[in-house]
Design a protein around this nucleic acid. Structure first.
Lengths: 316, 316
DNA sequence: CTGAAAGCGCTAACAT
DNA sequence: ATGTTAGCGCTTTCAG
């Protein structure tokens, strides 16, 4: 593969001149510029980006830390990021962590070893105190709110959202309401969900909280557990529309009326929920992803909130 | 940021020794190794990957060319790729092209400029003759079958799949069957769908082929067009379960019986299809993605076929 | 306007 | 076992 020296030699100029035409610098005579360009075309030359990035100390690459790569919510965030990245001519690396703290560290380390200009954290397993040190090496933006002044945030007000949803359920007369979450108390969203629940309903009977829910099967499993309870809940707030769909399916399968016998509300406004006419709260994750990307490339530490909206359909 | 020279100096050894301990080379005395390691830890040093990759001429990065970043089928392929990438400690860059041939070229060019070791093409807008030249710079594997000996393939036999599906529809007594596709004749899958249709049913009435279908709304629109036809089709083969769901919804909305009045079969076995009990043909795209990744890192040019399976549910 | 030369941070032959 | 040194391919002062 030809390099910049070959081009220089063949064009009868110095490498600096070649570099200048490559980077569209002014002060290059038209004749030399043309000569260089001709050789570049002839030899089908492309500058080596590794060398360029090494010396420029910039990569125009952003990483996206995602625990799972098969989860609708994270996919939405990723799509938002990608939307903006193509517009702004950045490239994005997907960094799955499976919520393994060590893996998460290796990903963050890509900032330190110069592979990335910035990282977007869609969800994390490490505490902030373990993460913030990496801001020394590049921009870090989170898709959740945090006080840390070094971290930019594109977030929705999860607590307000959960609160409003539970309150709405209560207003509709539900007193026994359950909910599902992905992870347990180690997760920020789970903590907020519990807190919001308690705020509205008081004590949380532990059997009303079903963990490890990610897809339809988990939703069905949750329904099964919930519906065989002594004090069977009359409404459940699912952590995603797929899980909600699973709940719905199971309810139907045992001839339960929705929403009469069981009210269901999901999250993220996904096709499956639309198809089943399930109510949902849309956290507008695509927008969150887009905003997060913008913050990342602006190296901004702003905290910007994205509004959520509750979409009432048939299931509630 | 400290570099390898700083470490060498501080540890009282040469850079080669530092490099050796960094890369776990043998023939380093335990005492020096320990000394170097201590300094590395003290100074919190991490080697610059750009410099390493530059000299090693290898990046351990794979790119995935995807026309859209909000399409279930491409997401499945991407998930397959990511599954394997974390196991094998590679990192993957997502390269959205929007089917723009120029964008596609820039992506392929990342091979030439050394940013990537290999590229997986999930779908393309350029002809192979425009793509194969890039194999000179790195591995290219496609998620469709092609003869080109320089291109590895992880594919399913689309033609056989389409043929079998149409034949099944015919065997069930359907004579007026329509289908939807994403792009038009410029797309390989569209061509194969048409060919399979003609093989089974003979001439294709142009109104039985609805293009530009990507999501539920498109499916509903397709249903609307199709169901107002003089010779209304009795079955439709959708290019995805979301589109199938849209067809289903529209059918329901005008009180059509499924499958009595309208049989529907989708593709890719997605949650929405499961929820609606829609029949589908599962091309196992996650597996295709996994296989494509393996081919890419093995720099293999093999053609490996992934089997498809027709899943009959209620809608047909 | 142009070129020489000094790096960027690292690896790997080649000596010793 | 360890050090010296020549690059990898590029950008950017600094002179002229």
């Amino acid at each position: 593969m030809a390099n910049i020296n070959d081009i220089a030699k063949r064009a009868g100029v110095s490498v600096s001149t070649v570099s200048r035409v490559l980077n569209h610098h002014p002060y290059v005579s038209e004749s030399k510029r043309a000569a260089v360009q001709r050789v570049i075309d002839e030899m089908d030359y492309t500058p080596n980006r590794l060398a360029v990035d090494l010396i420029r100390k910039e990569t125009r690459k952003i990483g996206v830390i995602m625990p799972y790569n098969n989860n609708q919510a994270f996919d939405q965030l990723l799509h938002g990021v990608l939307n903006r990245s193509v517009e702004l001519d950045y490239t994005v690396m997907v960094l799955p962590t499976k919520y393994d703290p060590d893996r998460e560290h290796s990903c963050l380390n890509m900032l330190k070893n110069k592979q990335l200009d910035g990282i977007i954290i869609t969800s994390r397993s490490n505490g902030w105190e373990a993460i913030t040190p990496y801001t020394k090496y590049g921009t870090i933006v989170a898709c959740e709110y945090t006080d840390h002044p070094e971290i930019g945030c594109a977030y929705m007000d999860r607590y307000a959202s959960y609160l409003e949803t539970f309150q709405m359920l209560k207003d509709k007369g539900h007193t026994r309401v359950a909910f599902t979450t992905a992870r347990g108390e180690e997760s920020n969203s789970t903590q907020l969900t519990i807190k919001a629940y308690q705020q509205v309903f008081g004590d949380l009977p532990s059997e009303y909280h079903i963990r490890d829910c990610y897809d339809m099967d988990d939703g069905a499993r949750a329904a099964q557990q919930l519906l065989h309870l002594e004090s069977r809940p009359t409404a459940v707030y699912a952590n995603g529309d797929e899980v909600a769909a699973g709940l719905y399916q199971y309810g139907k399968s045992i001839e339960l009326g929705v929403p009469a016998d069981l009210a269901i509300i999901g999250q993220e406004n996904q096709p499956i929920g639309i198809a089943l006419r399930l109510s949902t709260v849309d956290h507008q994750l695509v927008k969150v992803g887009e905003q997060a990307f913008d913050l990342a490339i602006e190296k901004s530490k702003d905290k910007v909130e994205i509004p959520y909206r509750i979409i009432e359909r048939y299931s509630i």
